[in-house]
């Protein structure tokens, strides 16, 4: 009797002591990355900035107190003589060189800026990922012919990468003419080789892994291996790059506007175009440049922070 009691209490006591620590469960890469992302200050700041930006982009036009295009206070601004109107009661951000309300223009312009960023990122992502996936699949499982195809594709991306992105954009803009679409296409095309290289490299790295070998030895068809095994495991750097490229797209679009290739239509305000117009009056009215510039910087920073935090969260080297 007493022996039995000691034995059970002994086991209970051991169970109690060992239960003190929780055993870590093997969470999936994505879930764990998300958990780490939530703990990252960078990610939270980035996400908040992006959320604010998206909200403004969506509801901005309804919030704007005045028309963004009406030159309501035209008479008060004499750009040629260096007379500008800064922030005041009715115009929180002051007036631009044509006597339009800057605050309203900023609110409305967010949508165009977001559009430029997202569309050009998508162009780069979709086309780049397509090229990269074909090239990567060909290189990993396509045999000798596949490798040759991969060689050719990579040489072409080499050529594209050899061009300064701005000049590539300028060349495209020269053919397509001056418009917002041109800017989006130009900025997007510049990203294609980057995405392609990234996905291909990532797929190549995955293709050499043991689980691919295991899948092949099980006799699974190559197309299926690429689609169900290699691709899902290769996507994380591409997703990170997509986030980061939203930032570069917005900055590059501003640079293109500065070079005079932006949207010539004054009816649609866009931060990059606003900045390039305002910078001509920088010496007399620096604030006029500041608003769009700071907005661009903060937005780009938001995407950069989130992207960098994602990169860290997804880095297998940092996994526990």
């Amino acid at each position: 009797m007493s022996l039995a009691t000691t034995k059970t209490s002994k086991i209970d006591r051991l169970a109690e002591l060992t239960a003190k620590k929780e055993t870590s469960s093997g969470a999936s890469l994505w879930r764990e990355a998300f958990r780490r992302l939530r703990g990252s200050k960078m990610a939270i700041i980035g996400a908040v900035v992006i959320a604010a930006f998206v909200v403004v982009a969506i509801v901005g036009p309804w919030l704007a107190p005045y028309s963004p295009t009406a030159q309501t206070w035209r008479g008060e601004v004499l750009a040629n003589q260096g007379e500008f109107v800064g922030a005041r009661g009715e115009n929180w951000f002051g007036l631009d060189h044509l006597g339009r309300d800057m605050f309203s223009r900023m609110l409305v312009g967010a949508r165009q800026t977001l559009l430029v960023g997202v569309v050009s990122m998508l162009i780069g992502l979709v086309l780049g990922a397509l090229v990269g996936a074909v090239s990567g699949a060909a290189a990993t499982l396509g045999g000798r012919a596949g490798q040759r195809l991969d060689d050719v594709v990579m040489r072409v991306t080499d050529i594209m990468l050899a061009l300064p992105s701005l000049l590539l954009a300028v060349s495209i803009a020269a053919v397509l003419g001056q418009s917002l679409t041109t800017v989006m296409i130009a900025v997007g095309v510049v990203q294609i080789p980057i995405f392609a290289r990234l996905l291909r490299g990532s797929m190549l790295a995955q293709g050499g892994k043991d689980y691919v070998l295991a899948a092949r030895s099980l006799g699974i068809r190559k197309r299926r291996i690429v689609l169900t095994q290699i691709m899902p495991n290769s996507l994380s750097p591409v997703i990170v790059q997509a986030t980061l490229s939203l930032a570069t797209a917005i900055i590059e679009a501003a640079a293109l506007s500065y070079l005079g290739l932006g949207n010539p239509d004054p009816a649609i305000p866009e931060w990059g175009v606003m900045l390039s117009q305002a910078q001509r009056f920088f010496d007399n009215a620096p604030m006029m440049s500041m608003y769009p510039a700071v907005a661009i910087i903060i937005t780009a920073l938001g995407f950069t922070l989130l992207g960098e935090a994602m990169r860290e969260a997804l880095d297998p080297k940092l996994r526990g």
Binding site: A247, I251, A254, A255, Y258, L275, Q279, S289, A293, I296, I297, A300, L301, T304
Partner: peptide
């Protein structure tokens, strides 16, 4: 921040 500031600005 450095990479987010447009060079011309």
């Amino acid at each position: 921040v450095g990479i987010c500031i447009p060079v011309f600005f």
